[in-house]
Design a protein around this nucleic acid. Structure first.
Lengths: 203, 203
DNA sequence: GATCAATCATTGAAACTTCAAGTACGATGG
DNA sequence: CCATCGTACTTGAAGTTTCAATGATTGATC
């Protein structure tokens, strides 16, 4: 049997939902891109990289870690970091213990870019999404997304309610820039005793 | 005022939801792209164009209509149709009544491509999305998406069932010709009721 | 210790999208 | 009539992402 002729097509409701999602997804990401590009001349993907770096311990992550956190391919990450480095927002250095690895670190200039861009970005997210949802809807949304993510990202920590770091006094967020992060420009960083990874950013 | 210092940051729950959405959105669209590219060598955007055309009356839409339906920029549509036309899946002809407009029509070859690609695509959507949601979740999802779409797409019919041309006020009787630079193969399928358009190009 | 597979990362070409003009046609108003 | 503006569409260049190929290092095996 070469062809499966018994495709289970979407019923009307499913089709309606699917099309709404496709439309929503495109429109929202375009809105985000537009806002960031207009205000900061930055694509969303690049903002995301800077934001994730800004939250990382020592503002540094391995290229692979970075790719995993923003869910990009290694190639894409490499091209992107080339660009960000050319802008002076990120620097590369070699990992002291694994010489295959490269550590990308956010520079002060890069941090400044994130801090400048964050309010506008968050404002847009709030305006287009959270200001329009009731608390119940938000909760449902989260529930649905968690459910679906499991199927898409086998090895992704949804980190349900597990604190990211056992001793994390304040909500660390790229979206909420914090200025008392210790300046750890040296890529040779501490905190690598345990084999477990230190962060579980779900985005 | 130069700086808004009163940004309303996202709380933990909102941030969690937002990151889950970003992750989900990227992973799902990548999965779709991958499946279509692997099986049909077709980007999702291009599949979407073909699918929308296949449903349109006379398998034809104006470039502007097409752009509106798939929510793409005119430029993008133009480039995309160039490519699709080069593949022989779409042809352009001049609009008989508004000579600014160009009508894009799906060829038989293009229709074949859609019909071949649809089952795999729908299968993926079902596998990654609908098979994982309870009916209640699906309904909530739809509700949330509808809510959010309103804010994103003011002039967009959520189009539950709203065809672009409900009763086709003016059947393009003579799509053809303009002798200029146009070749008018034969998009002149008047066709009001294709055999059975019931196939769902879920997208 | 040499080998082989797997991991980490980069590169260039090709593909797709966006941006900034630019052309052509239609509608409006003097 | 014709000047002007708005709409419909296209194009080329620049930017981003993907794909395929490659180099370098580590870890496991014999």
């Amino acid at each position: 049997m070469v062809g499966m002729t018994d495709t289970r097509w979407l019923d009307d409701e499913e089709q309606r939902t699917w099309r709404a999602f496709v439309a929503f997804s495109r429109l929202l990401s375009e809105a985000m891109e537009r806002q960031l590009h207009r205000d900061e001349g930055l694509p969303f993907s690049y903002y995301l990289i800077l934001a994730m770096l800004s939250e990382a311990p020592g503002r540094s992550l391995t290229m692979t870690e970075l790719a995993s956190v923003v869910r990009a391919s290694p190639s894409r990450m490499s091209h992107a970091v080339n660009k960000l480095q050319a802008n002076g927002w990120v620097i590369r250095s070699r990992h002291p213990e694994d010489r295959r690895a490269i550590i990308a670190s956010l520079t002060d200039e890069g941090m400044a870019v994130v801090e400048k861009a964050a309010p506008g970005h968050v404002g847009e997210v709030r305006r287009l999404v959270f200001d329009r949802l009731t608390p119940e809807q938000r909760e449902s949304f989260d529930d649905i997304l968690s459910t679906l993510l499991v199927g898409l990202d086998p090895d992704a920590p949804i980190c349900p309610d597990t604190p990211v770091c056992p001793t994390d006094p304040e909500p660390p967020s790229a979206l909420c820039p914090d200025d008392d992060i210790d300046e750890c420009q040296s890529p040779a960083d501490d905190c690598q005793a345990p084999p477990d990874d230190s962060d579980c950013d779900a985005a």
